[in-house]
Amino acid sequence: MSNDPASAPEPWELMQENIEMISGGVPWGRRMAFRFTRIEKGHAWGLQPWKERLVGDPDTGVIHGGVLTAFLDNLSGTAAGSALSKPRFVATLDLRIDYMRPAEKGRDIIGEAECYHTTRNICFTRAWAYHESRDKVIATAAGAFAINKPRPADSMGKIG
């Protein structure tokens, strides 16, 4: 890795390059079978497949709201990390979820998150979950993430 800041890739570029590893490196994310599909600076997209084990209402087969919370939390955190110009971990400070309509049984859920503002210490995010388009949203999220202090150089590359 070069120490020259001009030639160093931005965090979001590394994240997009390692998108498979970011998706697979988190045990709870893996249990939920959730994955990232695309990462750009300050933006993240993902897919949450329908799974029997994630159902919250056995009578309707609808996925539990808690799965959407984890999904939108993950996406928002990634959008926050991808907005920064240096690699930093971010930690969820708070997250608000509004449930607009139930997800449909057996259908994958698409999610997208954007980081619309950053300060020295905090990233502010919003996120959407839907089946087809943002016109018919299942849930929205607003989050704030604390930017952690730089990590020791020898810990880099050990994400998750």
């Binding site: 709870w28 709201g65 808690g66 984890a70 939390d73 997250l95």
Partner: peptide
């Protein structure tokens, strides 16, 4: 399986959120 971050062995925030919900 509830882990969200291996390096610090922390439970996933989303799992805790779902737990509280």
């Amino acid at each position: 399986k509830l882990i969200g971050n291996f390096m610090i062995k922390a439970i996933h925030g989303g799992a805790i959120g779902a737990f509280l919900e």
